[in-house]
Write a protein that binds this DNA or RNA. Sequence first.
DNA 1: AACTTAGGCAACCGCCCCAAA
DNA 2: CTTTGGGGCGGTTGCCTAAGT
Length: 326
Amino acid sequence: MVRPPCCDKGGVKKGPWTPEEDIILVTYIQEHGPGNWRAVPTNTGLLRCSKSCRLRWTNYLRPGIKRGNFTEHEEKMIVHLQALLGNRWAAIASYLPQRTDNDIKNYWNTHLKKKLNKANQVSHQEHDQSRDRSSLSSSPSSSSANSNSNIARGQWERRLQTDIHLAKKALSEALSPAVAPINTATTSSSTESRRSTSSASGFLRTQETSTTYASNTENIAKLLKGWVKKSPTQNSADQMVSPDSETKEVIKSNVEKDCAWAFQSFSGFDHLKDRDSAGVSPDHETKPDITGYSNQSQWSLFEKWLFEDSGGQVGDILLDENPNFF
DNA sequence: AACTTAGGCAACCGCCCCAAA
DNA sequence: CTTTGGGGCGGTTGCCTAAGT
């Protein structure tokens, strides 16, 4: 039996979200928290399907989302993790808590893939040139068949390494007492990628106490600004409270409250960070500076852990395949 | 200035997994 | 045990905009 999609009903709106829809959704989630998406359209009156609401929240409205301008470190992380995990964007996003899987996926498809291809072309050209040179003086053992088998072996090893990595991670999480799922939106599931999400959320939690969620508040503020500018006289939002400065303040404070709540619900990454954190204080709660997330040393430690945990293969793979990438 | 093309990104679609009934 | 429904994920589409002609 084929179940009809949840959005198959008539009267369901599609396409871009309007600022007023965003406000309705954010307001509702402030009160009830994310989850039970099925109830969101009925309770809010939004003419959107539950999935659409969830997606809008997780990819755009959710607190703590950073948009645009990927840093070089983030790029590296994505490339490393893509090499390690493949196109498991949710898992990759779990290591970059400020980024959404959709964002990372888009960035990969539009920027990094091209960059990698370019780098690959350059390295292959260089490889061909050096092979041409060496073939004049060396034995014919370095055939293309040989290099093909090396690639196949590399892919196989990579996959194996991924599985080992995931198994280790799952085990370490299962054994960790620090994992205390609170919120269903981020921690309820048991599959690997969902576990990963909760893990990264814990990483995010380490920054929580001083986070002002400016990005999200700004989103809403911008959004409200745009809404005012656009003068929505012709739509159903006429009945809504006008987003004057007072309302903005209310929404802002609600968003901030919501953010605090959302961050409190994050858990599970600390043990991953801890286990290789020689030199890093385990007292994450006392080092809450969100800017520290992009701090070079913390990144380096994290990357160090990532590299070491992969037995150095990630770096090897990247350097082998894309010596010109960075 | 008008049109075409390419790139970027938000959103949708279909499939899968899991838990509850 | 089977069915059903909610939620999550990755792939894909389509719209918008900037750049090029």
